[in-house]
Design a protein around this nucleic acid. Sequence first.
DNA 1: GGTTGTTTTTTGTCTATACATTAAATCCGA
DNA 2: TCGGATTTAATGTATAGACAAAAAACAACC
Lengths: 237, 237
Amino acid sequence: MKMPLHERIRSDFEGRILGGELAPGDRLPIEQELMQEYGCSRMTVNKALSVLAAAGLIVRRKRAGTFVARPRVHSMVLDVPDIAAQVRERGQDYAYRPIRRVLRGAGEDQEEALLAGCGALMQIDGVHMVDGAPLGVEFRLVSATAVPEIVRADLDSVPPGSWLLQHVPWTEAETRISAVAALGDEARWLGVPAGSPCLCVERRTWRGAERVTYVRQLFLGDAYDMVARFGPGASAR
Amino acid sequence: MKMPLHERIRSDFEGRILGGELAPGDRLPIEQELMQEYGCSRMTVNKALSVLAAAGLIVRRKRAGTFVARPRVHSMVLDVPDIAAQVRERGQDYAYRPIRRVLRGAGEDQEEALLAGCGALMQIDGVHMVDGAPLGVEFRLVSATAVPEIVRADLDSVPPGSWLLQHVPWTEAETRISAVAALGDEARWLGVPAGSPCLCVERRTWRGAERVTYVRQLFLGDAYDMVARFGPGASAR
DNA sequence: GGTTGTTTTTTGTCTATACATTAAATCCGA
DNA sequence: TCGGATTTAATGTATAGACAAAAAACAACC
């Protein structure tokens, strides 16, 4: 196993922590001791520990030492997929069917008000189709002040999710996942009886302090799920 | 703003990439140029870029240079909360009500078979209660070969989720989130009509190659949601 | 033309050292 | 005993230099 030394030190302790040999609160050897143990310079040890600290596995406190991180505030990596790509990967046929696209001011809706910042809003609604059947509907709001290009963009051939991903840089995002019953128009577009369970994905994006987009997607409960992973290669797959 | 130099270099490029100034595929200056530009040593530049590379924002190739990473398969950090703690944080009352707890061999169920590995299984079912009303039900399987302590653990006062979090080390986990309709027993335990939409959270954990646990949780659609974040402080909140 | 070495550029790792920063521990005087 | 100043042990940042490793670019050869 030819592994850089700092990598070996890192995975050594990672294993011991995740495997339970080192419990939260336990103190690790100080850098001096580790240089002895591994026969290397302090920078090498430091690099290994810095990476573990960045990953949140350990906490380093000056003068006190290095400790296994307290609360296993257990966080996982959620892959937010490009729906079209994901569907095609499974060998199925994907299509986006636009429902509506209007440029207007913010209405009564609280979300709209927050997003608008007294500017114009582009509303884009559509349905994701798989092999001719609806998979999900989406209701999207884009701030026309933050993304002026949206007004003239060609969004009929490309699903707006993909377009936005390519053209709109953002610095922060929040995704909220819940379960709701499909109602009214939503149920009709999805072609299911009202009350059918759907996975509701809401996403808000910001650029700095400025709100950029809001999306609400409703997916058929039995046709779509989201997966989050933790562990070796969590983000690599 | 007193910020370490490597941190400044890092956030400099992070900003330019997330802000769109640097597009995917663009090449960054080589380390030599950056040492000139920032008037520092190569190790400092290297540290900054290594962190960005670890975060997946850039890709570094020997002899070729450093490039902004390709269309970011957009991944976010999902916080998997401790239900009890989360509820109490909102000032509400939390209780766990056990339904069933049996030690047995694996049955017909495929999931059970995968988990068992010809060993015994501990099945633990219960309801999460908030202010006296059901929030969710959970159906849990724990490999008694991987976690022998489970057999004698006191799980009536402590919700098994918390107990496991404390006592069972694992190295890999996968969470699958979908929307389903509550049916039969599940609906009864939740106190809702059959067919009500629920958020279904399934989690599998491994220790190395060995399966450790499987959980299936059903939460009332209108009372529970999960949040994932991306951006400054994504894991810190 | 295509294959196979060879060079060279760029990142990867590591060392040894220096000084800064922080906070725990200690000391000391009122 | 308390509270504040001082010491000191640990991490944090940074430097300058060395050699390793990979892969793009080039050259040579059949």
